[in-house]
């Protein structure tokens, strides 16, 4: 672990399984261990492991971590429990500060207009996730519609 961090300090960003962790990049105004957009391609569990391996509480205080979620992740009790177990694991692996985003439909609409800005935008389809921009238009529409319905319902 110590070795990994030392190597990381000498490089513009830290790589772990293809995930580029933001610490020490110019894009990282807020000392995070969050991924460089577009490099987190193996889902939340993989991301948590990469992030926790880059935590540095001593020298630069790179220690907090952002994640984003689809609102449906929080609908059922089961979903909330799974979410809690993610946080628990993050803490077990040495994390102590993490925060979450839940994407809204407007983002997805904007992604339809400007896909080039959204290569990393993940949507949850049905039990699996996909990058929003590679889905067909009507599937994107479908997800946007469904999302809005759910927001009205909440």
């Amino acid at each position: 672990m110590v070795e990994l961090i030392r190597v990381g300090l000498g490089m513009p960003a830290m790589q772990n399984n293809g995930v580029v962790i933001q610490r020490l990049t110019n894009h990282s105004p807020d000392a995070t261990v969050s991924p460089e957009p577009g490099t987190d391609r193996n889902g939340p569990t993989s991301l948590i492991k990469s992030a926790t391996s880059a935590i540095d509480c001593i020298k630069y205080a790179h220690n907090h971590f952002n994640m984003k979620f689809h609102p449906s992740a929080f609908q059922s009790l089961e979903g909330k429990r799974k979410f809690l177990s993610l946080i628990k694991t993050y803490m077990d692996l040495g994390g102590h500060h993490t925060q979450f985003n839940v994407i809204d439909a407007n983002t997805l609409k904007d992604a339809q207009l400007h896909p080039e800005n959204y290569r990393d935008l993940v949507v949850r389809e049905a039990g699996f996730s996909a990058f929003s921009i590679i889905l067909e238009k009507f599937v994107q529409e479908e997800i946007i519609k469904r999302r809005e319905y759910r927001f009205e319902g909440v």
Partner: peptide, 9 residues
């Protein structure tokens, strides 16, 4: 790789 996640969930 995700063994700890299985255990916690």
């Amino acid at each position: 790789k995700d063994a700890l996640f299985y255990r916690n969930s």
